[in-house]
Design a protein around this nucleic acid. Sequence first.
DNA 1: AGGTATTCACATGAAACTATTCTCTGAGTTAGG
DNA 2: TAACTCAGAGAATAGTTTCATGTGAATACCTGT
Length: 402
Amino acid sequence: MEKKSVSAFFEEFLVRESLFIDRSVLLSSFIPENILHRDKEVNQILNILAPALKHEKPSNLFVYGNTGTGKTLTIKHITDNMAKIATERKIPLKIIYANCKLKRMADTEYRLLAQLASFFGRSIPATGLPTDEVYKIFYDSVEKESSTILLVLDEIDQLIKKTGDNILYNLTRINEDIKKSQIAILGISNNTTFMENVDSRVKSSLSEEDVFFSPYNALEMKDILKERASRAFKENIIETGVIEKCAAYAAREHGDARKAIELLRVAAEIAERARHKTISLAHIDEAEDKLEKEKIFDVVKTQPKQFQAVLLSIISIKSSNPYAYSGEIYDFYKRLCFKIGLRPLTQRRVSDIIREFELMGILNTKTISKGRYGRTRDISLSVSSSAIPLTKKILEDELSLS
DNA sequence: AGGTATTCACATGAAACTATTCTCTGAGTTAGG
DNA sequence: TAACTCAGAGAATAGTTTCATGTGAATACCTGT
């Protein structure tokens, strides 16, 4: 019986008409050939980078703005085109893209350099070499290349936060030491304020030019969604108001277009799975709920035990009373550790863990002073309450608690 | 009453420590000539 | 003698701990009326 229903399912699946024409348009890896509502920024950047095509060093450029405002997209779009022209005309221009946020890829000085060097075909062991040795290798390869090198550092704030601004200083100084090549750095950052605590020399040399990407407003968001939707879906599939609702959702998330597009995609998948012929507002709601739940479940499952214990403590306390103060949580956590045979961490560390959860968007904390009775953080869950019981269950399972 | 000083219970920062992962080196071991 | 093995040294990193310092406002303690 099972066999039959499975094959029947596939039969039916293949026959069923999909809502999509091209699903990839809605994936975050998609780069459209023209970018809406970013003409000003694109022009600015083009003007700044154009000298690279004449074997002149373009100014270092710093691009910043909130997530989902099209920074990476714009830069990739532009650099892809530049690379194409460069190869067509045999212009000595190399563009290196490194995402500093990817763990184990380019999130430290050493690894970034290793990755850069490997771009020039030099393989560098993951550890074992002194950092200045790696620098030397990188210098050599750059020198040998004798071309203009455009170094794109995405999420550069992560790199600085973790390793300090030394690396930028060194990189901006490279041009003084090498003759045949030249390097221009293009930094991309989500964090608009991180530049403030960077060494002023580095600051001035990195942002010889800067471009700010402001969040999309509701109208622009609508255009973008419409454009993508028209390419992703067949005609007349989207019910009225759906695009607007997605745009509104994204506006709540500080104009994050990526989120809006993802929401639309998930809604479409839900609609398709439910065999509906159109995407309705209800599907958007469902998708929103699903995205939110997925976010937590993913995080919860992949965190180490200590983190899970802390989160479980918070949820447990939160379920019985409206306030959760850090001291209480730590007590609960210690008892929990004892119960499951886990070595409890110090309060200092737990404090950091809570902060990390906050950065993941699972918690909200507010430091409050209770005057004579000290100072704490009031912690609340920023997770839809429908997801909490299941989250708790997962945590208990993970920690093998009954 | 009004003003200032204390004080609590943590937050926040910096430095130091630990464990782990990885490469490289060179001594010791083995197998074959 | 060449090839192989394997322990130990050096390096980088993540995760913590230790130590030190900071912080906001409810209270305690003055002061002068």
